[in-house]
Amino acid sequence: MIAFAPAAVLLLLFLVSMWKDRRRFRNAVLLGLTLIWASIGVLFLIPSLPPVAAIAAVALVLLVPALGTLVLGVFLVRNGITMLRKEGRRPANLLSLAAGLGIFGLIALIAYTGDRGSPAMDAAVGGLVLLVGYVSFLFACFLAYAFLYGRTHVRSEVDYVVVLGSGLIGGERVPPLLASRLEKGRRIQAAQATQAARGGGRVPLLLVSGGQGPDEKLSEARAMADWLIEQGVAPELIRLEDRSRTTDENLAFSRAVMEEEAGPDYRCVVVTNNFHAFRAAMTARKAGVNGQVVGSPTARYFWPSATIREFVAVFWEHRLVNLVVCGAIVVATGVAALVA
């Protein structure tokens, strides 16, 4: 069982880090490293396993990821085509298609250069594989932990339910994506109101956050508040934060509103869409917001591209470390190509 010692240590570090604050990206990396070392531990056990169990272990650790990569490539290409058909040809809608084609492009490149007998080309391709492997590892960590973080539930009473804005249709109407967030926030408030009626607690306020863009006729917060009132929410239970233009400002300005009204000991839950929940949680942590983030449902076809976009943003937010690692891989690849 010594083979699983690194995985056990990493798992302990992951649990401690998550207990301290679930909103850190390092939690995702620790989870990924734990799974990798657990897989290595399984490989070390193979010689001592019965034949059937050994085959199953090899398939689980090696074959499933390989086949999973092919399946993922097909899925991303199909999803990319769906995105183009339903959402148009904006660059953000090309992400899943580009990722799927990139998977098959890399496989084709490896197959093409495999029998060329060129050490320099092999070194270059090897460096590219390392780069892709590093980014893919971080993406897998992000995806796994974002899924885990998405299981967050509101377990205690809160003072505010903060709903983040996301743009308006025609400059004045709430789109389906934002309506999903608002409905999630309304349901959380209703559930908390029921608990308050039973136990004598306080009904949380709905704080809608979003300023007015240059092409909008009113602030997102005003449109969101109007939508909630149409759904039966009492106006006195709604607060507006109508200055923000970005997620950072959403959370910073909302924090100011909550602290001014309820003091620094307020408790809140932040609502956004599920693909955005983990990154919003990291932003909330940096902004000093006292609360976790929950996600509302998103159309299935929209989720892959949106998730890739969120990962790109997280990757860039940690660009110093990531660029250093990527730069080191490029330099090592160049040296290896020259030596070859």
Rank of each mutant, 00 (worst) to 15 (best):
R309G: 13
G133N: 09
V269L: 10
R173L: 11
G263L: 03
P264D: 08
L207A: 01
V129Q: 04
V132K: 09
M258N: 02
W227E: 03
N79S: 13
R78C: 07
T247L: 06
H153V: 14
L164E: 07
N27K: 06
S17L: 15
F311Q: 06
G165W: 02
R255L: 08
P65G: 04
R155H: 07
Y112C: 09
G165K: 00
G295K: 12
A262E: 13
A124I: 09
P204T: 00
A223S: 13
E172H: 13
S305W: 01
F44K: 01
E259R: 13
L338F: 15
L45C: 13
V158S: 05
H318G: 02
W19Q: 12
E241S: 11
E220Q: 12
L138K: 09
Y301P: 15
G167A: 06
A234Q: 12
R202E: 14
R239C: 09
H153N: 05
C268K: 01
A5N: 03
F25I: 07
G102H: 11
V129C: 14
L95D: 01
L128W: 07
A123W: 01
S166P: 11
S166R: 02
V325Y: 10
L177T: 11
K184E: 11
E259F: 03
I107P: 02
F142Q: 07
P65R: 09
T194W: 07
A28L: 09
F139A: 05
P119G: 08
N290A: 14
G102M: 10
V339I: 15
R255S: 06
E183I: 13
R24P: 02
H153T: 12
L109Q: 08
G68D: 05
L320A: 11
L130V: 02
R267N: 10
G105P: 04
G127F: 03
L207E: 00
I329C: 08
A336H: 04
D226W: 07
R243L: 04
R181D: 04
I188V: 15
L33N: 03
R116K: 12
V233T: 15
Q292H: 10
N273Q: 06
A277R: 01
P65N: 05
F147R: 10
M282P: 12
K286I: 01
Y266D: 06
L143P: 11
L63N: 08
E220H: 05
F315H: 11
R245I: 05
L178H: 00
V233E: 11
L323I: 07
A7F: 06
D265Y: 06
D122Q: 12
K20L: 15
G41Y: 11
R319W: 15
S17I: 14
V9S: 04
E172Q: 14
A299F: 13
G105C: 10
A111R: 08
R243F: 00
S219E: 02
E317C: 00
S118V: 08
V58Q: 09
G167C: 07
R245W: 02
L182I: 04
M18Y: 15
W316S: 07
G263H: 12
L15K: 07
E87P: 11
D21N: 15
R267Q: 14
A124Q: 00
V271C: 04
S180F: 08
G263F: 11
S48G: 15
T69Y: 10
V289T: 03
G32V: 06
C141A: 13
G150M: 04
R255K: 15
